[in-house]
């Protein structure tokens, strides 16, 4: 039987799709709770992201590269030039992030805290940077902030959490580096096409 989370504010029931979820943002009322073991601790509230007719929605199921996926969470980011979304998918039993930026998709399947990142302020878009022995073309730099949350998120996140980011293109992979004050996180992924995500009829 599928385990359920019940929002302590509105009572809304949600099936637990992400076994290692750390944050739960109620899709109905926006209450954000931290999941500690079996209990929920309220940590804040998120503005609800409007449900749109886009590619993904929380709870959506489908297949990607012949593996079943379920969309379990979403983070909306703001940056100076616009917004982007990151969707948390459980695909083939494994979690992965799908970044959706102006319709363009990147599937991030690996994340790692790195210690050898060059200082953020030394980076410039249009140049190459060396990370972990590989060279990457920096396509964009900026500062982002989490503007809203929805669903189940497998890491500690909060509205207002911010970072400096670097988007890069390497040999057949895309990277995203998030510079926090206390750590630097490298995400590795690949570009994807919308048609690779086939939704199942509800």
């Amino acid at each position: 039987m599928t385990q359920q989370i019940r929002c302590s504010s509105c009572g809304g029931a949600h099936a637990v799709e992400e076994a290692f979820a750390r944050i739960f943002a109620c899709c109905y009322c926006g209450l954000v709770s931290r999941i500690d073991g079996g209990s929920l601790t309220v940590v804040g509230r998120s503005t609800q992201i409007a449900v749109n007719q886009g590619l993904f929605s929380i709870g959506m199921r489908g297949t990607y590269r012949d593996e079943s996926f379920t969309v379990v969470g979403r983070i909306r980011y703001h940056h100076e030039a616009g917004v982007w979304d990151e969707w948390q998918l459980i695909c083939g039993g494994r979690p992965m992030w799908v970044q959706q930026d102006e319709g363009r998709l990147t599937v991030f399947h690996r994340e790692e805290v790195i210690t050898d990142a060059p200082p953020f302020y030394s980076l410039e878009a249009g140049k190459n940077v060396s990370l972990g022995g590989s060279s990457f073309f920096v396509s964009e730099i900026g500062e982002g902030v989490i503007a809203a949350l929805s669903g189940q998120i497998p890491r500690d996140v909060a509205v207002g959490q911010g970072f400096f980011f670097v988007e890069g293109i390497g040999a057949k992979i895309s990277i995203s580096v998030e510079y926090y004050f206390t750590e630097v996180v490298l995400y590795e992924g690949i570009k994807a096409l919308p048609e690779q995500f086939k939704s199942e009829p509800i």
């Binding site: 503005t47 609800q48 992201i49 409007a50 449900v51 749109n52 007719q53 909306r76 703001h78 940056h79 100076e80 616009g82 917004v83 500062e143 982002g144 902030v145 503007a147 809203a148 509205v159 207002g160 911010g162 004050f181």
Partner: peptide, 24 residues
């Protein structure tokens, strides 16, 4: 610099509506 960062991020948060412009 850290306080300026907080002020800047506050401004980023308010820069856009989370609600879908398409929806509203």
């Amino acid at each position: 610099p850290l306080i300026e960062t907080a002020e800047r991020r506050k401004r980023l948060l308010a820069l856009f509506s989370v609600e879908s412009p398409r929806a509203r």
